[in-house]
């Protein structure tokens, strides 16, 4: 009993787990925010300077330059911030869809079967294919990609929320609430929503990295953002033609940067889940 648990050893030993988790979330969030803001502030129309085209990484251009002499660091930042934006919009939208469907499923048996059918339908189509189809259907571009990612990522969260809502709906406090004469809408708002809110929040954050990855993938394949937008997918697909010439930095740095952003979001999601999960909550 006297032995200290792992999280109380070493650095930050004075903090308890919850404080540490929050610290992790805070720091990670800060890094992402900085990336986002930097990208936002960077001028999209980078000057082309053919005198410095195709330069390898240096102190002046840490990520090197491309075939038009544009600084790859600035392009990557811009691309990441665009990805974060699209990811944010798509994951929020997909969570809203998931929440609405989960509550729809709780209305009656027919609705529940409809939602289950919808879940099965969307789960049976490969993600990438679905995203490409929707994106093309909606005319590609930022709007098309956002919608496509949103409409293909609600499935998992809906499944979780549907089960959760179903369980809460059969609990004694909800049954009792009906006998107090409360309406279904009131119960959904007052009883069920507060209980699933944390799930929705975590679900949104966990969809984020997927959304970013998929946005980049379809863009890379040419079904997403238009080529003049500095998205990571575009940068990567452009770099393909120069890789053979030895310009490795064109794909390497943007690729790694994308990976890091995705990982950071994953860390936030996992930590948040740990914070909310009751079995871990009291460490």
């Amino acid at each position: 009993m006297s032995e200290l648990p792992w999280y109380n050893k070493g650095l930050f030993s004075s903090l308890n787990l919850r404080q540490k988790t929050l610290l992790t979330i805070g720091l990670t969030g800060l890094v992402l925010l900085i990336i986002f803001i930097c990208g936002w502030m960077t001028n999209a129309n980078l000057p082309t300077d053919f005198s410095i085209k195709m330069q390898a990484p240096s102190f002046q251009h840490p990520f090197g330059t491309d075939w038009m002499g544009r600084d790859m660091f600035a392009r990557t930042l811009k691309g990441l911030s665009l990805s974060i934006m699209i990811g944010l919009a798509a994951s929020i939208l997909s969570s809203i869809i998931a929440t609405l469907l989960a509550f729809l499923a709780s209305i009656n048996r027919a609705c529940d079967e409809f939602v289950s059918w919808l879940i099965d339908l969307f789960a049976s189509i490969p993600h990438i294919l679905l995203i490409m189809m929707i994106s093309i259907g909606l005319g590609k571009g930022a709007f098309g990609v956002t919608m496509a990612v949103a409409f293909s990522h609600w499935v998992n969260l809906t499944r979780v929320l549907r089960a959760e809502v179903l369980q809460i709906n059969t609990s004694e406090y909800v049954l009792l609430s009906r006998k107090f004469g409360k309406s279904k809408l009131w119960i959904a708002k007052e009883h069920i929503l507060p209980l699933v809110l944390s799930q929705i929040f975590v679900g949104t954050l966990l969809v984020f990295p997927h959304a970013i990855m998929h946005e980049s993938s379809v863009t890379f394949l040419g079904f997403g953002l238009s080529p003049h937008e500095p998205a990571i997918g575009i940068i990567l697909s452009e770099s393909m033609s120069y890789l053979a010439m030895g310009a490795w930095w064109l794909a390497f740095f943007p690729g790694i940067a994308l990976l890091i952003v995705v990982l950071l979001f994953d860390i936030i999601g996992d930590n948040l889940k740990r914070l909310i999960d009751p079995s871990e909550a009291n460490k």
Partner: peptide, 21 residues
């Protein structure tokens, strides 16, 4: 439809209360 005039009180009160309230 409305408030039910026959009210049941359960054996386990903790189950009849929303834990987030």
């Amino acid at each position: 439809k409305d408030y039910y005039p026959v009210q049941l009180i359960f054996q386990h009160p903790e189950k009849t209360m929303n834990p987030k309230w």
